[in-house]
Structures are given as C-alpha cells and as structure tokens.
C-alpha cells in the first residue's frame, strides 16, 4: 500500500531522513516509533507530499505520491500532532468543514459527520467552540476531523500527546476499531507502550534511519535480552556482582542505589537462579520484578540510549 524507498531529506547540514525505507501493507496498524526529533513527522510530511525531499521515492496506493495526486489524497485521513481546527467554528461545523473537503454530497456528508461525532463521543459538545473543550475532548475533535470521511489510510502523528489517561485509552480503542473496520493506520509515537499495545508492525526510527522493523515479537527477538530482572533494596559487594555475572545466561548487570538489574538472554529459570544465589549467600533483598523485553530495550540495545530520551 505504501512504499518509501531511500528517502533522503536534508535541512541544510542536518540530515532529517537518511535513506529511509518502509513498506506498509493494507490492513495493518503500522507504528513509527522513535524519540523526538528522530524524523517521524518529516517522514509523514514527505509521505503526504507536503515536503520537498532530496532523494528517494514515495508510493501510495501503488502510485507516486505528488501534491496533485488527488485520488490518493481522497483516501487518506490525517490526524496531526498539533490540534488543527478552526477556533471560530463549533465542533459540528469543524467536522463538517473538513469532511466537506473530501465528500461533496451534502446528504452523505451529514451521515458521515454524525457517525464521526458518535465515534469520538462528542455528541454532547457539538455546539461548543474548540476553546470551550478540555484537552482530551479537543484531541478527539482533532481525530474526528481527520477520519470523518472514512478514509482507507489513516495517518496519526502523535495523537495522544498531552492527553489524560482516560482520553488516551478512548483514542487507542478508537484506532483499533477503525482498523477493525478496514482502515490501514500509520501511527507515530514516542510512547513505546502505546505502539506495543496497538501496532501489528513497528519501525523504529532514529536520526532519520529505520534501525529495525517487524512485529514486536520479531523486534524483541533481534536483541539479546530475553528477561530483565530487577531487585530492589539489595546490598552487594564487588565479589557478589562478579559471581552473579557468572550465572548462566546473564550477560549484563547494573547495580546502583541498592538496585540490581540483571539482563539475561532468553532462557528458563533465570529468576530462580538469581534468587537462589542471594539466599545461599544470606543476602537480604526487597521487591523483585521480572520483565520481558520492551521496545525500549530493543532501542537501548540497538542505539545504546533510552527511547525516552
């Protein structure tokens, strides 16, 4: 459905996109994950033919994406990172206006607008102006304006930034519902938990390059970490640390402020072995956590830095 090949975009000396390659299939929720400034929004802007780029090709619905590719544009809905609605119009007018840029038939449009209002749960706020809405409701309006025409491809650029947890859940549920109805979704975010929760395939972007791509399971299998064990309130000496490091499948440990983090490769009984060691040496310890690797671990192992940074 979408093919981005060798896309290069420079802002003067800065390389915002560095030979970016992406392929997105119809029906998936595709996550673009990366820290702020990694090039996600630039990639989306190039994909939408808004930005000039230096090299590469962008194909949408198997055709080159150009500003005058109105047939493709008609099937795309975009929810921007910043709320983009008219302050002078109320909720219904805003949705109707943007829907009208895609759908000419007034009767059909009326139906679509009603459906979009219901979908984002703004039935009680249709006469309100944007400035009268809370942050969460405003985000919902922003989404409604982007999806009211029921597009085949929906691009969502960080739609949950600065949104309360309740609205965030509502938005994420909505995205999955849109996907169930047949829309392909491209979802950019720097919140790895969101991406992990809803995306069927994910591309991790850093410094304008796609550093890893695949399902979340595939991404996690690319890294060494199979399990991360965290033990709080534990007092250890250097010799203890050296011995723990020698336990089977342990490949990295970190000890700071009485907190021990042990990274093990994928294997069974890692936690039991670590706890047995502590008990055998009469070392007291507090709370214990065992986690499977997250996308942050994937990012950390590939780039050497935290995704949250």
């Amino acid at each position: 459905m979408i093919k981005i090949q060798n896309l290069v975009k420079r802002y003067g000396e800065l390389v915002a996109l560095d030979h970016l390659n992406l392929e997105i299939e119809e029906g998936e929720i595709f996550g673009l994950l990366g820290p702020n400034g990694s090039g996600k929004t630039t990639a989306i802007s190039c994909l939408l033919a808004l930005l000039k780029y230096d090299k590469g090709t962008v194909e949408v619905f198997n055709k080159a994406m150009m500003p005058d590719n109105y047939a493709a544009k008609k099937q795309i809905g975009v929810v921007l990172q910043n709320v983009a609605v008219f302050e002078e119009m109320n909720v219904r007018e805003n949705i109707d206006y943007f829907c009208g840029l895609y759908v000419n038939n007034a009767k059909e449009r009326k139906k679509l607008v009603e459906e979009a209002i219901r979908f984002v749960g703004l039935e009680d706020y249709t006469r309100m102006r944007p400035k009268q809405l809370s942050g969460g409701l405003l985000r919902r309006l922003n989404i409604a304006c982007g999806i009211a025409h029921q597009p085949r491809l929906i691009i969502m650029d960080e739609p949950t930034v600065a949104v309360d947890p309740q609205s965030r859940n509502k938005i994420l549920e909505g995205i999955m519902e849109l996907n169930r109805r047949g829309a392909t979704v491209i979802y950019t975010s720097h919140y790895m938990d969101e991406v992990e929760q809803i995306c069927s395939r994910i591309a991790i972007i850093d410094h304008g390059r796609c550093i890893a791509q695949g399902t979340k399971e595939e991404l996690k299998s690319m890294i060494k970490t199979g399990e991360k064990i965290t033990i709080e309130g534990v007092l250890l000496k250097e010799e203890n640390l050296a011995e723990i490091r020698q336990l089977p499948h342990v490949f990295e440990i970190a000890y700071e402020d009485q907190q021990l983090v042990v990274r093990c490769s994928g294997a069974k009984h890692n936690l039991v072995r670590v706890l047995n060691y502590l008990q055998e040496h009469d070392i007291a310890f507090g709370r214990v956590f065992s986690e499977l690797p997250t996308l942050n671990d994937v990012f950390l192992e590939i780039t050497g830095k935290e995704l949250r940074d």
């Binding site: 808004l50 921007l80 709320v83 983009a84 609605v85 840029l101």
Partner: peptide, 18 residues
C-alpha cells in the same frame, strides 16, 4: 500556508484543489 500553521497543513493534504 502549510509552513505557517497546522490548520493549513490539514487543508493542504485534502483532495480539494489548491
């Protein structure tokens, strides 16, 4: 102008002729 506001970006990416 899409380089001046988000609202303009949203309007620029619609199928309505510029």
């Amino acid at each position: 102008q899409a380089n001046l506001s988000s609202l303009a970006i949203r309007r620029s990416i619609t199928p309505t002729h510029r």
